[in-house]
Amino acid sequence: MSVMTTAAGAPAQRRPRVRAIEGQEIALIGVVGLLWVVLSLATDTFLTTGNLQNILFTVAPIALVGIGMTAVIVTAGIDVSVGSQAAVVMVVVALTVRDSGLPFVAAVAVAVVVGLVLGAVNGLLVAYGGIHPIIVTFGTLNIYRFVALQIFGTEQVAGVPATLAPIGGGMEGRLLGVPTAWWLTLVLAAGMWCYMRYWATGRHLYAVGGDAFAARLAGVRVRRRQISAYVLTGACVGLAACVLIGSGGLVQQNVGTGLELRVIAAVVIGGTSIIGGRGTVLGTLLGALLVGTVSSAVTLLSWPSELAQLFIGLFILVAVGVDLLRERRRSAR
């Protein structure tokens, strides 16, 4: 996170070509696969269409936000305000859908635009304010929550119509038996994966995270890349908020609290380095799946639901610990 760490780290070696899949991702696929096998043997309820659909649907918002968060963390930033951003988007969309009867496409557009604006505020403060990203987004976490509560007024938003059901969790929100929210996540993740891997500006995200000063000297527009990462996160939050509203009903005032921690957990478990410069969207997707599977497993095994958090904490420690060991071996070589 400091200049020092990057200076003391191993010099980047020019590899003949970038591997399509990292070691950590293979390990994650193994862990998720193993969990699924064990759970399907241990319980009758895990390997049912309903349960799998449910897991994929609950994972979708975390993975969606995770796509943007991966870009942010790769640039050595962090965004802890996503939960409050989601709250603002949800209350705005819920109110407009209910009171002015917006159609589906317009509602999604409103959500994305509101998300973009909130993300842009974070990005501008980080890029031009010279403030550490965690301080900026801790601040906006409070400010956005205030904005959301102010729009809520005194009560929750009840009777939201099912305008957004096509990407919600109900029967309508499925395509080929898989929740459309998950399709949306997959398509976006694939796009982002290609962008961060093959496009010049996508590679620049890694350069900014590796060493912002060197990147600037090499002609990378550092501030622009930083802002773009936060703006992208805002847009992703907009989409995730639509998924969360889903088939409508009630939008409560505490929506989105704690979302940031689940998303950061998914990103970190997916092998993205918190000090920047390394990480992929594929890993984030797998990390989100692991988090979702664990939460579902704890419920199915009828353990206390709070135990899921303990496992998430342990998974973060193991994932980052293994990564640290590999890094140390790499630099010792």
Partner: peptide, 11 residues
């Protein structure tokens, strides 16, 4: 990294 360690132990 302190952020990660204390996030995990927070959980």
């Amino acid at each position: 990294p302190a952020l990660i360690a204390t996030l995990a132990t927070y959980y």
